[in-house]
Design a protein around this nucleic acid. Structure first.
Length: 522
RNA sequence: UCCUCGGUAGCUCAGCUGGUUAGAGCACCUGACUGUUAAUCAGGGGGUCGCUGGUUCAAGUCCAGCCCGGGGAGCCA
């Protein structure tokens, strides 16, 4: 809605309230008024979504109205109409005697139209029902010569350059309906499990989180030679790279919390799995250890996959077919044996493999590619697992999601809990921490988390060791000074998860308007 | 940021070892079509071959620099 229009509606509503109260009406009447949609035009009773027309068998034989955008217009007679409610189109059949030639000429790709007609069983083979149109109104013309999206297969790169229109394609409408289901499912899952949705700040002053380069936030036109004390907040501020530290503060009072918001990284990353602006979900729970953390991560992933299978089957079927076509182009060796839907069901039905870093190194050292010297990077205890190593574990050795715990302390963040001899992931090869990475086939790291170091002396020692300034994080350390408890949490990359569920290969194709180095057009 | 591949019509791409007026399919325009499924058929318009410079009788094709994009790597979610 136009902002000015909305303010007018609000003002007139306020005026009505004033009037009502002046007339001495009861407060509840005013309230009832507030929730009635009087100020908005209601759709006609016969208006239906295309999804309901296609699925609701009781509508056959009735007259309904639908509105959407023309996908194709064939044989001067058949409109394939899509309104975004489903990936499927409604075939609207027009009678040439009822619709004049001038109107038919305006039924171009992506024109907005409203059709009224009777739902009948289709004479053609491609669909169960179709609409026998009695009236068609063009609501918005679309100049076919200038409209860039054609009824044919476009490259994803081309559609990325036309990101403002790509939602009108089957692929992208399917992806974004599924993104909605995943997002909504995350809130539903945590709500059902007693977690509080916690809004961690977007602008932060701490740059000690160690999660990468940050975007500076300033109200100054030029920061050169200016004391940060002169700036808006009186100090250096940045866009958040993680809400974790703040979530920990909340978890040590509310018990269970999760954040769900945008996160920013100013890394010069040019890959199919990195964005400068992405959405992250970070649950944090008091009295939860690394084992509980793994259980939560696995259960959440499976819950979300189950939800998408339940709510978005037609979108998944479309994406499954799209992926199968793509696979056909590849040489036989590179093809994956499972389709998208089979893959989702497989992940849902099988437990994630859980191994320690020690075991991971062991498996890699005994692997064929290692012995044939096919790995580009060395494998030895103490170094981080490279992409090729993670891929081997997930895609070759186990062929399912894998959770790796007990990484060497030196390669992980300061807040992770140091393992003792009785802890999971303890190693006699060197100090390890209660970190966990959830690795998914085709995507890599989808979740990174840990049990946090709750012991003040241990935490301070690690911060000193890693050069993290304790003065700046006095508020974080206070949680360890006053009623500290074991607690744990993780970060789930929304886009990476959506990539897995939709089978999209590039992360830029699962976020509406991707932000990457040199790219912020829309 | 590094490695690698690419940039030819609105889109997807062909154009061999330099050699006449640079091609195809789709899209678009005109016409045909009352059961099509990315409809089909006939005809038509449409190009500074990413940019700049160089080699050559001759450059889309070879060389150099720059710009942009894909894939891989690092950073991570």
């Amino acid at each position: 809605m136009d902002v000015r229009f909305r303010s007018i509606v609000l003002r007139s509503f306020a005026a009505e309230c004033k009037e009502s109260s002046e007339k001495g009406e009861k407060g509840e009447n005013v309230l009832a008024h507030a929730f009635s949609p009087l100020s908005l035009p209601s759709p006609p009773a016969t208006m239906h979504s295309i999804r309901s027309v296609l699925d609701d068998t009781t509508l056959t034989g009735t007259t309904v109205t639908v509105a959407g955008w023309v996908r194709t217009f064939r044989n001067d007679r058949f409109i394939a109409l899509n309104d975004g409610s489903t990936v499927r189109n409604l075939q609207c059949v027009i009678d040439q005697e009822q619709v004049d030639e001038a109107t038919r000429a305006r039924l171009t790709t992506s024109a907005a139209v409203r059709c009224t007609g009777t739902i009948v069983e289709s004479k053609g083979g491609g669909q169960r029902v179709e609409m026998q149109v009695s009236e068609v109104v063009v609501l918005g013309d679309s100049d076919g010569e200038k409209y860039p999206i054609q009824p044919k297969k476009h490259s994803l790169e081309f559609l990325r350059e036309n990101a403002h229109l790509r939602f009108r394609t089957s692929t992208f409408s399917a992806v974004f309906r599924i993104r909605h289901q995943v997002s909504f499912g995350i809130h539903a899952y945590f709500d059902q499990h007693g977690y509080n949705y916690f809004h961690s700040p977007i602008i932060t002053a701490s740059d000690a989180e160690g999660a990468g380069e940050m975007f500076r936030v300033t109200a100054l036109a030029d920061t050169k030679g200016t004391d940060p004390a002169e700036d808006f907040f009186g100090r250096v501020t940045n866009l958040t790279v993680s809400g974790q530290l703040e979530a920990e503060l909340a978890a040590t009072a509310l018990g269970k919390v999760y954040t769900f918001g945008p996160t920013f990284r100013a890394e010069n990353s040019n890959t199919a799995r990195h964005l400068a602006e992405f959405w992250m979900i970070e649950p944090e729970a008091a009295f939860m250890d690394i084992q509980g953390n793994m259980d939560l991560a696995e259960d959440l992933c499976k819950h979300l996959i189950a939800r998408v299978l339940e709510k978005s089957m037609d979108d998944l079927q479309f994406l499954d077919g799209r992926l199968a076509d793509e696979e056909k182009q590849k040489p036989q060796q590179q093809r994956s044996e499972m389709g998208l839907i089979d893959r989702l069901k497989f992940v849902l039905e099988n437990p994630f493999e859980r191994i320690t870093y020690d075991q991971a190194i062991d498996i890699l050292l005994r692997s064929k590619p290692y012995q044939k010297k096919q790995f580009q990077f060395p494998v030895e205890w103490g170094i981080d697992l490279q992409s090729e190593h993670e891929r081997y574990l997930v895609e070759k050795h186990f062929n399912k999601p894998v959770i790796v715990t007990g990484y060497p302390a030196q390669i992980k963040a300061f807040y992770m809990r140091t393992n003792g001899p009785d802890d999971l992931g303890y190693s006699d090869k060197g100090p390890t921490v209660a970190a966990m990475d959830v690795l998914f086939p085709g995507i890599g790291e989808i979740i990174g988390g840990s049990q946090r170091e709750e012991r003040l002396d241990m935490l301070e020692a690690r911060m000193a060791e890693m050069g993290v300034p304790t003065e700046q994080l006095w508020w974080y350390l206070d949680t360890r000074r006053f009623g500290t408890v074991p607690h744990a949490g993780f970060g789930l990359g929304l886009e990476r998860f959506v990539q897995f569920v939709t089978g999209m290969g590039n992360i830029r194709d699962v976020i509406p308007f991707p932000r990457t180095p040199g790219n912020a057009e829309f």
